[in-house]
Design a protein around this nucleic acid. Structure first.
Length: 571
DNA sequence: CTCCGTATCT
DNA sequence: GAGATACGGA
C-alpha cells in the first residue's frame, strides 16, 4: 500500500494516486482537495510548507505527487520544491495565481514537473498522474512497469522517451535508457523543451511496409511472371535500385522521413551481411543447402507456416505489439483451440544455437520452455489450461538460406534485392528482418483436448517444424501446388490450424515477408475491428502482450533451429 | 541541390 | 542494439 509507485494499486492507477496538496490559503486547499478527490485521487492537504515537508520526510512513500502553491508565508514554494526534489524525489507541481514567465521558469528550473495557474482546472488535475507515471517508467523497467507503460502509450502516440509509435500500432515497449530524472535533474523544462526528434520504432508492420516497398522495387514486372522458372541466377535489377527515397515513397507513411528509412535500410543491410558471414562459417557443417540443392536438408516443413496461412485470416483477431505480433484466433470459439500466434522479431540468434537443427525432443522442450507463457496465457482464459505450441523461428536457418542469397547478392554487389535462391528455385525473399519470428499456437491443454498439441507432437514424431521463415523455402512449393501443402509433419495441425492467413493465397511468390505482410495487414484490420468491440478483452490482450513481450526476449535466448516447443501452461 | 551510403553518435 | 545524425560523394 505504501511502497511507492509500485504499490498494489497499480491496477487502478491513476485512481488512488496519493496527492499532497500544500497551500496556505485554506479556501484553495479545500477546492483543490475536492477537485482532486473527484479525480479519484487520495488527497492529503497541508497549509504549511514546513508541515508538508515534515510529513514527506516522515513517510517518503506515502505520497506519489505533491501539488504546492508557490507563495506561502512559512516557506517559499520553491524552497519546498527544492527540498522535495533533493530528499524524496517526488514529482512536484507548482501553482500560483500569476503566470509570470520568469516565475514559471523558476519553478521548472527548480524541478517542478508542471506549473499550474490558478484557478486550476479540472482537466489539469485529472492529468497529474502522468508525472508520476513518467517518473515511474523511468525508474521501473521491469515487467511491472510494462502494464503501466502501456497505459501511458494509450495516452499519446509520442511516447515520453521519444519513441514515435505508428498509429494504432501497439508496439513493443522500447526499453530505453531513461533520461535520468529529467524532471528535476534537468534544468530544462521537462515537458516540452527537451524536444528531441522522436525515434521511429520499427514495429512489425512498419517493417513490413518497408519490406514490401523494397520488394516492390526489386520485384518489378520484369521478373514477376517468370520468376519461378527463371534461371537460378537472377539478375538484380540495377535500374530499380532500392534507395531510401523510393522505399519511403512506396511505404506511404506520412510521418516517416527518408532518413528514417535510410537508417533502417542500413541496419537491414548490415543484417544481411552478418547473416552472410554466419552462413559462411556455418554452411559446411550445418548442411546449409546450396543453391542447386533440390531439397534442403530437413526440408523445413512449410507446414507450420503454410498451414497457418490458410486458415485463419478471416476469423482471427490480431493484436500485436511492437516486435511481437499476437494473433488470437477468435474463430476458435467455434473450434476448439484458441490460437495465438506471436511473431516477434528479434535480433539474430547466436550462431551456435542456430546451428542446431534437430527436432526438439518433446519432453525436453516442454520442460525447457524458457519462459513459460503462463503469464501470457493466463489472460486467455482462466478456466482453460493451454498448451502452447511454440514454433520459434530459428532465425538462423531461414536466414541462412537468405545468406546464400546474400552471398549471391554480394557477388553482384550492390544488390539489395529481395530475391533468394533456394533449393528448389526462386523464392522471393523478404528483406530480412533483423529479428526473428516466433509463432505461438495456443491450444487447449492435453488434458482437455487430448489429441492436441502435445499429443500431436508426439504422434507426428519427427516433426520438422518449419520455422516461420523457412517458409520461403516452401514457398515455391506452395506456389507449385497450392493445394497440397499439408505436409507430413504438421498434418496434424491441419485440423487445428490456428492461423491461416488466407493471404497465402497461393501466391507463387509468397515469401516470408509476404506472409508477414498479409499477416500484418490482417492484424491491422482485425485489430481495428477488435478494438471497438471487446475492449476489456483487448485490454487484457494487450497487457498480456506486453508481458509476453518481455518473455519473448527470454525466448530469443533459447531459440533453436527448427525448434518447436510445447509448453504446458497451467493457469 | 537531392539522394545515397557509410561512419559515428546517442 | 536500434535508430539518429554527420558527412562526403555521386
Amino acid at each position: 500500500m505504501e511502497n511507492g509507485f509500485s504499490s498494489p494499486r497499480t491496477d487502478i492507477f491513476p485512481a488512488g494516486l496519493r496527492v499532497l496538496v500544500v497551500d496556505d490559503d485554506l479556501t484553495w486547499l479545500k477546492i483543490l482537495e475536492k477537485m482532486l478527490k473527484k479525480c479519484s485521487y487520495e488527497v492529503t492537504t497541508c497549509c504549511l510548507a514546513r508541515d508538508a515537508l515534515d510529513m514527506l520526510r516522515e513517510r517518503k512513500d506515502r505520497f506519489d505527487i505533491v501539488v504546492s502553491d508557490v507563495n506561502m508565508p512559512d516557506m517559499d514554494g520553491f524552497k519546498l520544491l527544492e527540498q522535495v526534489g533533493l530528499e524524496m524525489d517526488l514529482p512536484v507541481i507548482m501553482m500560483s495565481v500569476d503566470g509570470e514567465t520568469s516565475r514559471v521558469m523558476k519553478g521548472v528550473q527548480h524541478g517542478a514537473c508542471d506549473y499550474l495557474l490558478k484557478p486550476v482546472r479540472m482537466k489539469e488535475l485529472r492529468n497529474i498522474w502522468q508525472h508520476v507515471f513518467r517518473k515511474k517508467i523511468h525508474e521501473v523497467k521491469d515487467i511491472e512497469g510494462i502494464e503501466d507503460i502501456q497505459m501511458m502509450r494509450n495516452e499519446s502516440d509520442e511516447f515520453d522517451d521519444g519513441y514515435l509509435l505508428s498509429g494504432g500500432d501497439m508496439s513493443s515497449v522500447k526499453k530505453r535508457k531513461d533520461l535520468e530524472n529529467r524532471e528535476h535533474d534537468d534544468q530544462e523544462f521537462c515537458d516540452h523543451s527537451g524536444v528531441k526528434k522522436a525515434r521511429v520504432l520499427w514495429s512489425v508492420d512498419l517493417h513490413q511496409k518497408f519490406v514490401n516497398a523494397v520488394n516492390q522495387i526489386g520485384f518489378d514486372s520484369e521478373y514477376q511472371s517468370s520468376f519461378l522458372f527463371n534461371s537460378l541466377i537472377r539478375r538484380f535489377s540495377t535500374k530499380n535500385e532500392v534507395g531510401p527515397k523510393k522505399i519511403l515513397d512506396l511505404m506511404n507513411v506520412p510521418w516517416l522521413t527518408r532518413e528514417n528509412v535510410a537508417s533502417h535500410l542500413q541496419k537491414y543491410r548490415l543484417y544481411w551481411s552478418r547473416l552472410q558471414k554466419q552462413n559462411e562459417s556455418v554452411t559446411s557443417f550445418a548442411g546449409t543447402p546450396d543453391f542447386s540443392s533440390k531439397d534442403p536438408p530437413g526440408s523445413f516443413g512449410l507446414q507450420s507456416s503454410i498451414n497457418m496461412h490458410q486458415n485463419n485470416a478471416v476469423n482471427s483477431n490480431f493484436g500485436y505489439s511492437g516486435n511481437k505480433i499476437l494473433v488470437e484466433d477468435v474463430g476458435p470459439r467455434i473450434h476448439e483451440g484458441d490460437l495465438e500466434g506471436i511473431v516477434s522479431f528479434l535480433p539474430v540468434a547466436e550462431p551456435k544455437k542456430a546451428l542446431r537443427g534437430h527436432v526438439p525432443d518433446p519432453q525436453k522442450t516442454s520442460s525447457s520452455s524458457p519462459m513459460g507463457l503462463t503469464h501470457y496465457l493466463k489472460s486467455m482464459g482462466p478456466d482453460v489450461n493451454y498448451a502452447s505450441f511454440k514454433a520459434t523461428v530459428p532465425n538462423q536457418h531461414p536466414w541462412s538460406g537468405e545468406a546464400s542469397a546474400m552471398q549471391f547478392k554480394q557477388q553482384l554487389k550492390q544488390e539489395h534485392e529481395p530475391y533468394l535462391l533456394l533449393g528448389d528455385g526462386y523464392t522471393h525473399l523478404p528483406l530480412p528482418i533483423p529479428n526473428h519470428i516466433q509463432v505461438h499456437h495456443l491450444m487447449p491443454a492435453p488434458s482437455i483436448y487430448p489429441r492436441t498439441s502435445i499429443t500431436e507432437r508426439d504422434e507426428s514424431g519427427p516433426i520438422e517444424v518449419q520455422p516461420f521463415c523457412t517458409e520461403y523455402r516452401s514457398n515455391h512449393i506452395t506456389s507449385l501446388s497450392p493445394v497440397g501443402r499439408t505436409i507430413g509433419s504438421f498434418s496434424v495441425e491441419a485440423d487445428r490450424q490456428i492461423i491461416y492467413p488466407q493471404a497465402l493465397e497461393a501466391i507463387s511468390t509468397i515469401t516470408c515477408c509476404d506472409f508477414n505482410q498479409n499477416f500484418v495487414n490482417n492484424l491491422e484490420s482485425d485489430q481495428q475491428n477488435l478494438i471497438p468491440g471487446s475492449e476489456s478483452a483487448l485490454a487484457s490482450l494487450q497487457e498480456d502482450l506486453q508481458l509476453f513481450l518481455l518473455q519473448g526476449y527470454g525466448y530469443a535466448e533459447n531459440i533453436e533451429l527448427q525448434n518447436i516447443e510445447f509448453s504446458d501452461c497451467e493457469d
